[in-house]
Design a protein around this nucleic acid. Structure first.
Length: 629
RNA sequence: GGCGGCGUAGCUCAGCGGUAGAGCGGGGAUCUCAUAAGUCCUAGGUCGGGGGUUCGAGUCCCUCCGCCGCCA
């Protein structure tokens, strides 16, 4: 059996972040699971590198677009191996073969009549070099350039979505599992209840040159989705490499919810128009919300996957990502949660089970696998619980319910820990019941072997190490069928106690930072004498005007009671005429400073937040020059 | 504004028509093979508000509120 899984190609206007990492880890885990089952797997990921955002990001970085995309694409390629992600191919939309495929598809659909030329009218901002949507405007102005956009007509190419709308609705109805989880299928059906318009798929080269040229009109390049989505076909060699058909018939995509519409609406229609079968399934996950309060500061605001791996290790991060998020829904990410979760489930429960078992085997049997002996009902109960947990784990994993899958498996781990306590091998040892002791430890070793294999897709490196510590060769054991046949460990085999698999983390980062913060707070307290150094006074504004050539500065004449000139950066919030007569608070003993040629003799106090800036004013009547303190 | 999702114990979430659940944290006890780990006991939340359907509703319907996403 073959299996083809993809991540989206990531847009290279930013470096890899947690969301990218999650999608890619999910795809890798599923790919490994399928390989474990003996299936032949193709796993595609890559980068999306065209468009005006890239051009602008490149300009900002002082590079030409190609240099820029090369640099960011490299960051993605460097990041995935750190997370132990093993993809089959990394595709870039700037690959010559991909470009060729896009052009071929455009040509074919154009000839077929699915692409037509038409006029588009919209509000264009010359500063941004793009059309703005009505929603983006602020009081009718471009939010970035504060200028009114120009109504502009532009001719473009359009893809005829409406022609296939009914077909798509029908397809969704006939294939209930086409989109997973089912909530997103409902959402798509909702989208399709309204008429789709034609999809604009071009940009005139005069406006955007960083794209793939239309084969039948050199004045245009493709825009966004038409280019990007086709990677799923070009990445497997469509149409030249005959192998593409094998993969395409079993294709499954993994995406985040923000790109649902292109994948669930545009893409199936493109495929239909091309006369190709649609992909098999679309798996949609939610967002990671970052809980800043529970983040270590040294990591910064953006969670970089590289940093997480460096700090916690790939296996722990992979486990946490799958365990913490209910696939399809949003989840909260924090390092504190990562530490707490992996401490409890990986260190205390699973890791400790491994270590105590191997420890007893070493202590009581010199590290040799003991003989299986006779199986009692207790042994059989554990074996049954474990194997049935593994079965539901596997089916939950295949359904992309990773979260539940791991919960199920943890229950089996708990059962094994209970078994250890109830059988109390140390008692058996004391009483000299070697036969029974032998059986108990054999049962535990077998349990670990099965767990190691089925958890390998999630935590490949740690589980390979565990298998080796059990005296087994990973490449021999990593086959699901073999793994599930009880009794593969042969008595006498050498085991290794090894190192603790998942050392418990004591949250040192947080304790230290909290302490440092407290210390800083302490240092930031000052005696009142410090405050008294400042000469704060009420001042009355007698005149105000803009400082020529600036957007933000006002020049104020104030009385306090002597007259002074003060420059204040409040022009975005106050008009000069509204200020005259206002009483404000002035810092009167600042060193005079020359700002834009004007000497400012003091500073006006104001409060600022998201909503803007507000001057501090006395609540009632006071005379100019009154002391503030 | 339209569509969809979410709102259940301090925290993270399961449950989706039949007497409110798990894990973590908290409290108590206990074993000693083990990573100050394990095991056992314990926690009393008007299941966002209101209305309705039903013998019976976190669980279905309507409505309101809050948060999130997509779209216009």
């Amino acid at each position: 059996m073959a299996y083809y899984i993809t991540t989206p190609i990531y847009y290279v206007n930013a470096e890899p972040h947690l969301g990218h990492a999650y999608t890619t880890v999910v795809a890798d885990v599923v790919a490994r699971l399928k390989r474990l089952k003996g299936e032949e797997v193709f796993f595609l990921t890559g980068t999306d590198e065209h468009g005006d955002k890239i051009v602008r990001a490149a300009e900002k970085a002082g590079l030409n677009p190609k240099e820029y995309v090369d640099r960011i694409a490299a960051k993605f390629r460097e990041t995935w191996p750190l997370l132990h992600i093993e993809y089959s191919r990394f595709i870039r939309t700037t690959d010559p073969y991909h470009k060729k495929v896009v052009q071929l598809v455009l040509q074919r659909l154009y000839e077929k009549g699915d692409i037509s030329f038409g006029e588009y009218e919209g509000l264009y901002c010359f500063g941004c070099e793009r059309f703005l949507t009505p929603k983006e405007l602020l009081d009718g102005l471009c939010p970035d350039h504060k200028s009114p956009p120009t109504p502009l007509r532009e001719s473009n190419y359009f893809f005829d979505l409406p022609r296939y709308q009914d077909w798509l609705i029908d397809h969704l109805r006939k294939h209930p599992d086409f989109i997973n989880p089912p909530g997103y299928r409902e959402e798509v059906l909702g989208l399709l209840r309204e008429d789709l318009g034609p999809l604009c798929i071009s940009r005139p080269k005069s406006r955007l040159s960083w794209g793939i040229e239309f084969p039948f009109d050199r004045n245009y390049v493709t825009y966004v989705w038409f280019d990007a989505l086709l990677n799923y076909l070009s990445g497997i060699g469509y149409p030249e490499d005959p192998a593409w058909k094998k993969w395409w018939s079993v294709a499954e995509h993994v995406i985040a919810k923000d790109i649902l519409k292109p994948h669930a609406v545009y893409w199936p229609i493109m495929l239909r128009a091309l006369g190709l079968p649609v992909y098999r399934r679309l798996h949609v996950h939610g967002y990671w919300n970052l809980n800043q309060a529970k983040m270590s500061k040294s990591l910064g605001n953006v969670v970089r996957p590289q940093d997480l791996v460096a700090r916690y290790g790939a296996d722990r991060v992979r486990y946490f990502l799958l365990r913490e998020m209910a696939f399809g829904q949003d989840a909260e990410f924090s390092e504190e949660a990562l530490i707490v979760r992996t401490n409890a489930e990986l260190a205390n429960d699973f890791g400790n089970l491994v270590f105590r078992t191997l420890s007893m085997v070493k202590k009581y049997f010199g590290g040799r696998v003991p003989g299986p002996g006779e199986e009692t009902p207790e042994d059989l109960t554990l074996r049954d619980r474990l194997l049935s947990a593994v079965r539901s784990y596997l089916s939950e994993m295949e359904a992309f319910r990773f979260h539940r899958a791991l919960v199920t498996l943890n229950e089996a781990v708990a059962a094994a820990n209970q078994y250890v306590d109830r059988q109390a091998p140390w008692e058996l040892k004391k009483r000299g019941e070697t036969e029974r002791l032998s059986r108990v430890l054999y049962t535990l070793l077998e349990s670990l072997r099965v767990l190691a294999v089925v958890l390998w897709p999630v935590m490949p490196k740690a589980m390979e190490l565990l298998l080796r510590n059990l005296g087994l060769a990973p490449e021999e054991e990593l086959h699901l069928e073999r793994a599930l046949s009880w009794g593969r460990l042969s008595p006498g085999g050498a085991t290794e106690k090894g190192r603790v698999l998942f050392p418990r983390l004591e949250k040192p980062g947080f304790a230290q930072e909290e302490a440092r913060e407290e210390a800083e707070m302490e240092e930031k307290l000052y005696p009142i004498e410090e405050f008294k150094k400042w000469d704060l006074r009420v001042a009355e504004v007698v005149a105000a005007e803009r400082v020529p050539g600036t957007d933000r500065l006002l020049m104020l004449k104030v009385r306090c009671p002597e007259e002074r000139t003060v420059v204040a950066g409040i022009a975005e919030y106050y008009r000069p005429e509204d200020l005259v007569g206002k009483k404000v608070v002035l810092v009167a003993n600042l060193k005079p400073a020359r700002i834009r040629g004007v000497v400012s003799q003091g500073m006006i106090l104001a409060a600022r937040d998201k909503g803007g800036l507000k001057l501090l004013v006395p609540e009632g009547e006071v005379s100019p020059g009154a002391e503030v303190g």
